[in-house]
Design a protein around this nucleic acid. Structure first.
Length: 190
DNA sequence: GACCAGATTGTCT
DNA sequence: GACAATCTGGTCA
C-alpha cells in the first residue's frame, strides 16, 4: 500500500523524518527494485537559499512546486540525477531529498545497473540510488501514490534517528535538516 | 581510511 | 560563462 497523499502534505522536516524506514520501490520492465530509506534531507522554501526553489519557479524546478506526493528529479554535475519528494502544498516549493537506501528487493538488478557488486555502495548516495532504481528524467513529476514508483509503509526494527547539517551545499550549511538512521551501514556519510 | 582531482552538461546570470 | 543538493578512482599511509 503506497502512502496516502496526506502523508506528504505536512511540514517538510516532519515528512523527512518520517520517511526514514519507509520503502521506495520502482516497478520496471526489467523487474522490481526496492530499498529502505535510511537518509533524507529537507529543503525549504523560506530561509533556505540552498533550495532549488529559493529563486522562484523555473522550468527546471517546476515539479518542486507541484502537488505533494510527486517526484522532483533533477540532473546535476553533468552526469547525476537526484530524487526528491514534493511536500506541503502545490505552489510552495518544498521537498525532501532522498539521500540513501538500504537495498531490499531486486538487488541483482541494482548490481547490474550500477555495475557494482558491493551492496553497501548500491544506493548509498542520492545519485547512486537513482542509478540503482533506474530513476531519471522520465520520473520527474511522477505521482508517488501510484505504481510504478511508490513509497510504502514498512515494518522495521526500532532505530535511533540522528539530525545533522546537510551535505554538498555551499550556503545555509548550518541548518540541521539532514536525518538518518543511526549505525545503518547504508548511510552515505557519518 | 583519508584526501584529491577529474568527469561532463543543463541551467541560470 | 560560471557553477552545481555528486561519484569514482587514484594515491599515500
Amino acid at each position: 500500500m503506497p502512502l496516502p497523499r496526506a502523508f506528504f502534505a505536512r511540514p517538510t522536516p516532519l515528512v523527512a523524518q518520517e520517511l526514514l524506514g519507509k520503502v521506495l520501490s520502482h516497478h520496471t520492465d526489467e523487474g522490481d527494485c526496492s530499498g529502505i530509506i535510511v537518509e533524507t534531507e529537507a529543503y525549504l522554501s523560506e530561509g533556505d537559499p540552498s533550495a532549488h526553489s529559493h529563486r522562484g519557479l523555473t522550468p527546471r524546478n517546476q515539479a518542486m512546486f507541484g502537488p505533494p506526493g510527486h517526484a522532483y528529479v533533477y540532473f546535476t554535475y553533468g552526469m547525476h540525477f537526484c530524487f526528491n519528494v514534493v511536500t506541503r502544498e502545490k505552489g510552495i516549493g518544498e521537498a525532501v531529498l532522498i539521500r540513501a537506501l538500504q537495498p531490499l528487493t531486486g538487488i541483482d538488478l541494482m548490481k547490474a545497473r550500477r555495475k557494482m557488486d558491493n551492496p553497501k555502495l548500491l544506493a548509498s548516495g542520492p545519485a547512486r540510488l537513482c542509478q540503482a532504481l533506474a530513476i531519471g528524467r522520465e520520473q520527474n513529476g511522477c505521482d508517488l501514490t501510484q505504481v510504478p514508483l511508490t513509497i510504502e509503509e514498512h515494518t522495521v526494527a526500532p532505530f535511533e534517528m540522528i539530525v545533522t547539517t546537510r551535505i554538498g551545499i555551499s550556503v545555509a550549511q548550518d541548518l540541521p535538516l539532514r536525518y538518518y538512521i543511526k549505525d545503518n551501514p547504508y548511510v552515505s556519510k557519518k
